[in-house]
Simulated scan of single mutants.
Amino acid sequence: MKKYLVVLSLSLGLFVSPVSADALKNSLTNMLNEKDTSPSMVNLSNLNINGKAKPVQNVPKTRSSKAVVATINGHKILKKEADAHLKKRTQGKMSNFDHLPKKQRLRLIQEMALPVLALDSAQKELSVEEKEAVYSRLWMQKEVLKIKITDEQVKKVYDQLKQRSEENNATTQIPAFETVKDKMKLQMKDKQMVGTLMKDVEIKVQ
């Protein structure tokens, strides 16, 4: 169950963070490409593109990577987690959470809080059946991504269907391969997934 909840947390984080984090993303992007234009932005005049600070006075101290930099409903956020999130957000140009001013730290933590808060709400509000449905759907989506179907395999099936249609003198026109390739590939993945799940399954109908 814990494993599934972790998967759910990560997935929910993917769904909500792109929408709710636009302000943070834009702010960090501006920080890296423009001069400081508002009090909420970080002035990077003392940093080069590699994120190394020039010698200046009052440089913020850097805490240990294992230091707790925030808590979200009791859930601890370590500095190494905040550093990794910052590095991802700035495409590697910044990676030290402690070098952000307090307002930017808060925004970053708020973004990191989204999947945690979403998971808390899901655990409280979703029924057992709803949770199981989410787990099953996420697992199947994950497994489908592992299945590799080449264009050549899809083309072979397409040609077989086209030939069968022509042999049966079907009046319906067969669409061009490129227009149906992706849809056929997805259908073939689904079929393979079903076959894998049903393999060696014993089913008894009473």
Rank of each mutant, 00 (worst) to 15 (best):
L86I: 06
A23R: 10
N169E: 08
T196Y: 05
I174W: 14
S64Y: 08
E129F: 03
K183D: 06
F15A: 08
I149R: 06
I49A: 07
D120E: 14
T150F: 09
E130F: 06
L12D: 01
E34Q: 09
S27Y: 02
S38H: 01
I109D: 00
E178I: 05
R164T: 07
P18A: 00
S38F: 02
K162P: 08
K102Y: 01
M198D: 10
D182Q: 11
L5M: 08
L78V: 04
H85T: 11
V144W: 05
A70L: 08
K61N: 12
N58I: 10
K185V: 05
R164A: 12
M31L: 10
E81K: 03
V116N: 00
D83N: 06
A53P: 00
L197W: 09
A67L: 07
Q192Y: 10
D22L: 15
I72T: 09
A67E: 05
A84I: 11
N168Q: 14
D190W: 14
K189F: 06
L14N: 01
G51I: 02
K2W: 05
R105K: 11
Q192M: 15
M198F: 15
F15N: 01
V59K: 00
V116L: 12
K155F: 14
T71A: 11
P101D: 13
Q141R: 12
K199V: 12
N43H: 04
V59I: 10
L86W: 02
G92V: 03
N33L: 13
P39G: 01
K204R: 15
S11P: 00
M188W: 03
D120M: 12
N168D: 13
P55Y: 00
K199E: 15
I109P: 05
R107L: 10
M184N: 04
S95F: 11
S9W: 05
R137L: 14
S38G: 11
K76A: 12
Q110G: 00
T29C: 10
K66G: 10
P175V: 09
T150A: 07
D151E: 15
K61H: 03
N30A: 02
K52R: 09
A82M: 13
P60D: 06
P18E: 03
D151C: 06
K181W: 05
L108K: 08
M112V: 09
K61R: 10
K131V: 15
L12T: 01
S165H: 07
E143Y: 04
A113Q: 01
K189H: 07
E178G: 03
K124Y: 12
